[in-house]
Nucleic acid binder design. Structure first.
Lengths: 225, 225
DNA sequence: AATATAAATGAGTGACATTCATTTTTTATT
DNA sequence: AATAAAAAATGAATGTCACTCATTTATATT
């Protein structure tokens, strides 16, 4: 076994230990001594591999994200149709986050402690949401999604809604079935909105007239397809 | 001045001090010694009023929420129409959260540290979102909102999307104007969804939404020519 | 085998949250 | 007003950890 391999194996061991101890005890509750013990390593050794407790947590979360991203990408590739893909992404996200709820909690707490969001914590997130971005852009290109919705707004709405749903779910102690249903409903809402179709706001000025005229043009345009 | 008043004033002082020091330094960076100094009180005295650092943060956040709730309730009462109210709530939420971004960050971190969500941390949140719930229920009753969307899903989507938007905004360093626009777009999405099938500009005087829709139609026209 | 370099160790340090024996202030009683 | 009793306030002392660093141990190079 080469030196390089030995070092990498140790790093893995430490990460595994940290993952377990963090998940069990939360960030503050996790003692570096416990992590070192779990990894069969002296306390000082941990600091040879990771600058401090925060960096350790970051590494654990980065690994989590890498796996998450891989799974999302694979799933999307194996699914056809924009809405099916969105649905898959939502279910997948909810399932994974529920399964690794402790890690998710740690992640939420991490943001607060990081001074330099952009450089580090934001990057693993980026690779993950890129999967969504790709699906969304393709949906727009196919004319299935409204192109005038800014991507960043759509992305925030998608993941923001799901994350809150997961939180609610975990607090209420729902199982996988409930989670799946919640994800499904969240997607329905994401796609079609809350507005009832027949509802029309009252008309009280010039702008409304313009709007209705515009909608008439838009409808004609759609029919001509 | 009665005894009761003296004690309450001190508690207020300590809360003010804690608010300032937490906002400035974050949770870990805030030293109890500094908070005590700020409040003109001995270190031990703080512990006569609050069990520990966490309880202190909780109290600060509870006060923040109480004010937030009051403002939201007042604004909703002074606004007519479901969509106008949703729009107000979104803008208000985004503005307040951006103004007190530090507190929001602390709050996010708080969840992680609390063992007993339901009993404490979740309660102040509850009073706040009740304002949204009321607007939503009324919207359904009036036939303006789709009644088949579960309230908890709608609520999570609403606040989840906004919170992510605020976070994105803060990371990118946007100002009040950008925040307002983001809130507006988030609401448009919340109301009408991403699906192109039932795309429709909000008929409520939102010139931005109308403009965006117009541009979308124009783009389609160009392509088809 | 001798030397140089890289890794690992764990006792020690410092920073802080929290406690508690003591002091000060307030209230009640005569 | 004087005294006792109770309530508040104090800050030095304590304990817990994250993190460091002088030594020791393992590995590579000659």
């Amino acid at each position: 076994m080469t030196r390089r391999q030995r070092l990498e194996e140790r790093e893995e061991n430490i990460l595994d230990a940290a993952h377990a101890v963090f998940a069990e005890n939360g960030f503050d509750g996790a003692k570096m001594a416990a992590i070192a013990r779990h990894a069969d390593v002296a306390e000082g050794t941990v600091y040879l591999y990771f600058k401090n407790k925060n960096a350790l947590l970051e590494a654990v979360i980065a690994r989590f994200y890498a796996r998450l991203t891989e799974g999302a990408q694979r799933g999307v590739t194996g699914t056809d149709g924009t809405f099916e893909r969105l649905n898959f992404l939502a279910r997948y996200h909810v399932e994974q986050c529920m399964a690794e709820w402790h890690i998710l909690e740690l992640m939420i707490g991490l943001y607060r402690r990081m001074q330099d969001y952009e450089d580090r914590g934001y990057t693993f997130n980026k690779a993950y949401v890129a999967v969504f971005d790709q699906v969304f852009r393709e949906g727009v290109a196919r004319g299935e999604l409204r192109g005038e919705v800014p991507l960043s707004i759509a992305r925030d709405a998608f993941y923001g809604a799901l994350e809150y749903s997961v939180r609610t779910m975990m607090l209420r102690g729902g199982g996988k079935t409930r989670a799946r249903r919640a994800a499904s409903r969240a997607i329905d809402l994401f796609c079609h909105g809350v507005s009832a179709h027949n509802a029309q706001a009252e008309v009280s000025g010039d702008i409304e007239a313009v709007t209705r005229r515009l909608e008439a043009v838009a409808r004609k345009l759609e029919k001509r397809r």
